[in-house]
Simulated scan of single mutants.
Amino acid sequence: MQSDGVRVHGASGQPVLLLPGGAEACDGFFPGLVEGLADCRVIVHDRPGTGTSAVDGTLAGAADHLSDLIDRLGCGPVVVVGQSLGGAVGVLLARAHPEQVAGLVLLDPTIVNDPRTCALLERMTRVLGALASVPGVRGVLTRLLRASIVRSTRKQHLRPDCEAAQLKMADIDIPQLARAVRGITEVSRGLREPDLPRVPAVVVTADRKPATAMRRGHERLATAFGGRVVSWPGATHGVHLDHPDETLATVRELVGQVNAKA
C-alpha cells in the first residue's frame, strides 16, 4: 500500500515502523529488512524534516506526528526499529505514546537520555550547518565527508546492498541534518528514564568500551524499558549495515516475542 508518502509492505502480521538515522530517507536505509519481514506489515515513511519529505518538522514534534500516522494507518501498536537519531525518535514515541509501541529495536541509538552528549551533538551539527551555508564552503564540506565515508566503506567489505546504502549516505545534506537535530538538548533535558514504559526492547550498541558515555546510555535505556543490550564484535555505529543478518534476526526475535505476548 502506498499513500501520501507512506508505503506499507505486507498485508498482514505485526506492524513494524522503520526510523532511519540522521535526516536520511527511509527507502533503502535498512537493507534486507523489508524483504526479511515478509510476514509483517513494514511501514516506510520519511517524517517531516527528513528524507524526501517536503514538509518542515522538528525533533520535538516527531512523536506526535508518528502517533498520528499510526492512527491514520490503523496499525498500532507497532514494533519500532530505529537507528541513531531514529532510535532516539523511537524512545520519544514510546515515552509520549506508549499505547502505540509494542516493542523496540534500537540500533546504536542517539542517547537522548544523556543531555551532555546531546548538547555536544547539537552544537557540532549547528556549526557544520552554519559553515555549509557559506557560499563555496558547503561543497568543500560535502566532498570531504563523502571522501571519508567512501574510504571507510571500502575498508569494511560490506554486503553489496549494504555498501550501496552506506555510499548513498555519503551524499549528506548537512543543513537538513542540523535542522533534524535542532532541539535535541532541550528534549533530552526533559526526558526522565523512569517515565519510559516497560516494553519488549533490545538496544544494539556498537563494539565500544564499556565505560563510554554511549555504552552507559544504552545500558540505562535498556534497563528503563526492561529490555537488554546486545553488541556484536566489530559492530560500528552503522550496525545495520555491517551486521545486517544479525540485525534482521534480532528484529524477527523481538517480533516473535511481541506476538507471543499478545
Rank of each mutant, 00 (worst) to 15 (best):
Q2N: 10
P15I: 03
V16N: 11
V16G: 09
P20G: 06
F29G: 06
A38M: 01
A38R: 06
R41E: 11
D46P: 11
R47G: 07
G49P: 07
G49W: 01
V55T: 14
T58E: 08
G61T: 02
A63N: 13
D64P: 06
D64L: 00
L69E: 00
C75H: 00
V79Y: 02
G82H: 08
H97R: 10
T110I: 13
P115D: 04
T117S: 15
R123C: 10
V134T: 11
V137M: 13
R138C: 07
V140A: 12
R143A: 15
T153I: 03
R154N: 10
Q156F: 07
Q156V: 06
H157P: 02
D161Y: 14
A164Q: 14
A165D: 01
A165L: 07
L167R: 13
M169Y: 00
I174S: 06
Q176N: 02
A180K: 05
V181R: 02
G183A: 04
E186P: 06
V187K: 04
G190Y: 08
L191C: 09
D195G: 09
A201H: 03
A201V: 01
V202H: 10
D207G: 03
P210E: 10
A211C: 08
G227E: 05
R228V: 11
R228F: 01
W232G: 02
G238N: 12
L241V: 04
E246T: 10
L248W: 00
G256A: 08
V258W: 11
